[in-house]
Amino acid sequence: MLVSMKEILDRASAENYAVAAPVCQTEFNARVAIKCAEEMNAPIILLIPLIFDYDVDLFGRYLKELAEAASVPVAVNHDHGSDFESAVACIRAGFSSIMVDRSELPFEENAAQVRELVKVAHAVGVSVEAELGHVGNAGSYDVDRDAALTEPELAKRFIEETGIDCLAVAIGTAHGAYNKGQVPYLDYERLAEIKKVTNNFPLVLHGGSGTGDEALGKVAKMGINKVNIGCELFQSAIEAIKGADTEGSGAYGFANIIEEGYGSRVKHFIRVLDSQDRAWKPEDRSGKREKVEITKDTIL
């Protein structure tokens, strides 16, 4: 069932859990991610960054068909869109959500460019994610970590001025692989304050890989509703290949080996984020969801 990311994340925020958003480089990744979600009866968000060499129109139409045929809610999200043209191309190709990433720009310019694409996307039922603060790269974590953490009051203002459907926040994670032995440290108090002042607005965590199960489980209960994951999934697939017997005819099992490595990690994150058995059926889409209040006891 193809849905917007808004539909998935509004429910996740109301019921206090997070949804896995695995990076999908190919049709094969997407099929595996959806298969895992179906096996675990979980909603899923396919994350499509355009850093890879896609035929966006062809890939988008294919992903749309896969999502429509799925037995669980699936959103197809254009990740880290850096220009107007690529966002429109993804909307035309059938993506149900886009991310407008202008996080390195000053607040006013960031908000203005996001607001422009919100008008376009919402006109055709596509949801929009944006980022305030800036999530840097894991390789330079010691330098970047505190450079642009999200300010709670600015987050509230940004949401009100842009009309976005979910907000990616910088609370201490980073993109990519951390240096050996390094573990990110998250600002939980900042997250709690952002969730409070934005009135339980759906929040997104970028850089889920390497953050650790305990931390991810905790933020999923504190108001993060979508967690982007890429590096750990690919590392798991590579490790599965390294450990497999691919001599001779064993090489024909190449695709199955990758599926096992990548897929087992997708399922792992679905469990950690508490989105297993959270899927719903088409007839339930208009139903009112009970809101779960976040209290001090909830997050400790």
Rank of each mutant, 00 (worst) to 15 (best):
A112Q: 15
R265M: 15
Q113Y: 15
L273M: 10
E129W: 08
V3E: 07
V219M: 10
I159N: 04
A87I: 15
D245A: 09
R11M: 09
L47Q: 12
V88I: 15
E68V: 08
P73D: 08
L300I: 10
E293A: 14
E151Y: 00
G208I: 01
G181W: 07
S71Q: 11
E116C: 05
K296P: 00
D101G: 06
G253I: 01
P106V: 08
T26P: 02
R61M: 13
I294F: 07
N228G: 08
N29M: 09
I98P: 11
A251F: 15
A112T: 14
A138S: 13
S127I: 03
T211N: 03
E129S: 08
K196I: 00
R190F: 02
N110W: 03
V72M: 06
E104S: 13
E151H: 02
P202A: 01
A70P: 04
F95T: 01
N16G: 01
Y62E: 14
A138I: 08
L186Q: 07
D187P: 05
S86T: 15
K156D: 00
H175D: 06
A148I: 01
D55N: 15
Q113D: 13
T295G: 06
A130Y: 03
E15S: 05
N179Q: 11
R265P: 01
E65A: 13
H206M: 08
A130E: 06
N256P: 00
N29S: 10
N199H: 12
D83F: 00
E39C: 03
R285L: 10
H134I: 02
K119N: 14
E39A: 11
A177H: 11
K156F: 02
D284Y: 12
G230M: 06
F158G: 05
D165H: 11
A67K: 08
E27R: 14
I91N: 10
I224G: 02
G261S: 11
I8G: 06
I45K: 07
D187L: 02
I48C: 14
F107P: 01
K64C: 03
E189H: 03
L50V: 14
L66K: 03
E293Q: 11
P184D: 04
T298R: 06
K221M: 11
A168H: 05
L132G: 06
Y17E: 12
C90D: 03
G261L: 13
K6F: 02
V197K: 01
H206T: 02
E189D: 15
T150A: 07
A121C: 14
K196M: 01
E259Y: 05
D55S: 10
Y178I: 03
E283M: 10
S209R: 03
A237K: 04
I45M: 15
S103Y: 04
E129R: 07
L9Q: 05
H80D: 09
E151A: 02
